[in-house]
């Protein structure tokens, strides 16, 4: 029912929003949107607005805010995943295709090496990388970039519009699941984790790259100053949108810390839950294994 509602909402856009939220207000819970308390029904729409408004400048702003480091973080995520030819992978909230392109490149380089090997079995299954994003604007950015990279015709990339809390994929159908800088923006983290656990095969891995909590003393002070003073100003200057970037830094602070998030992953049924801090915890890569 919730999903149907969301579908309708997505199709009709803004107009239905006041109606639907007032109808379900009775059973609604408060959730956080940055530091603000909002109704659960509103959060996804508000997040959607944020990403619609930043989609065009998304890459530029990522580069500016992370001084280009986000590329290394994404490389690290993919190298931890260690993709293989014939893999069925689901990249959630990956509208711009950053992770998907990296996985595809890794698989292709393994494949071209394997082709020189006489024992290589050409009957292997085709690699399929599903890019799932709730926001069509972000998916369009990704599609455009795929064409720029000459991957427009690649059958391995499949663009899917969908909600991470209610995936449309079969149970036990995926080898890998990644979510990079996405889980912070969902309304129910637990639902997303349960869905990830559902779609993964036995032995499949869940990997999450997310901005996290810095605990290193002096660096923490500097990082707080940087996030609350510089990033919103930067957003205003470059993307002309202070609000969205204010939301960004606030939502990072509201996100559970490394240990807490790891235990949430374990509660969803994942085994061998680990995390790795990058740059002192500015981002963390959490991983879990379905058995």
């Amino acid at each position: 029912m919730a999903m149907a509602l969301r579908l309708i909402k997505r199709n009709l856009g803004f107009n239905l929003l006041p109606l639907s939220s007032s109808a379900s207000l009775l059973h609604s819970h408060a959730t956080s949107f940055g530091f603000k308390e909002v109704q659960e029904e509103e959060k996804s729409q508000m997040v959607s607005n944020v990403f619609s408004s930043v989609a065009s400048n998304y890459d530029l702003m990522n580069d500016l805010m992370s001084v280009g480091l986000h590329r290394l973080w994404k490389d690290r995520l993919v190298s931890k995943l260690s993709p293989f030819p014939g893999m069925k992978h689901l990249d959630v909230a990956g509208g711009t295709g950053d992770i998907a392109f990296r996985i595809l490149e890794t698989v292709n380089s393994i494949r071209s090496r394997a082709l020189q090997d006489p024992c290589y079995d050409p009957l292997q299954e085709e690699t399929e990388i599903y890019v799932c994003d709730i926001n069509p604007n972000m998916l369009n950015v990704g599609r455009k970039r795929a064409i720029e990279r000459g991957l427009g015709k690649d059958k391995s990339l499949i663009w899917v519009e969908g909600n991470a809390e209610a995936l449309t994929f079969q149970d036990n159908s995926m080898d890998g699941y990644t979510i990079a800088f996405g889980i912070r923006n969902v309304t129910h983290i637990e639902k997303v984790l349960d869905e990830a656990h559902r779609v993964l095969k036995r032995g499949g891995r869940f990997l999450c790259l997310e901005l996290s909590h810095v605990e290193v003393p002096v660096f923490k002070e500097w990082y707080d100053y940087y996030s609350f003073s510089i990033i919103p100003a930067l957003g205003e200057l470059v993307a002309g949108d202070r609000e969205s970037y204010q939301y960004l830094v606030e939502s990072i602070r509201r996100f559970p810390n490394q240990e807490k998030f790891a235990s949430m992953i374990a509660d969803a049924g994942f085994r061998k839950v680990e995390y790795e801090n990058l740059v002192g915890g500015v981002v963390a890569i959490h991983s879990g294994l379905k058995l």
């Binding site: 480091l69 290394l72 973080w73 490389d75 690290r76 490394q258 240990e259 790891a262 235990s263 374990a266 994942f270 085994r271 061998k272 839950v273 680990e274 995390y275 790795e276 801090n277 990058l278 740059v279 991983s287 879990g288």
Partner: peptide, 14 residues
């Protein structure tokens, strides 16, 4: 080397 914590993961569930 890539701004990472080398290879020391934090085993949690186990």
């Amino acid at each position: 080397s890539r701004f990472t914590t080398s290879t020391i993961p934090q085993p949690l569930s186990d």
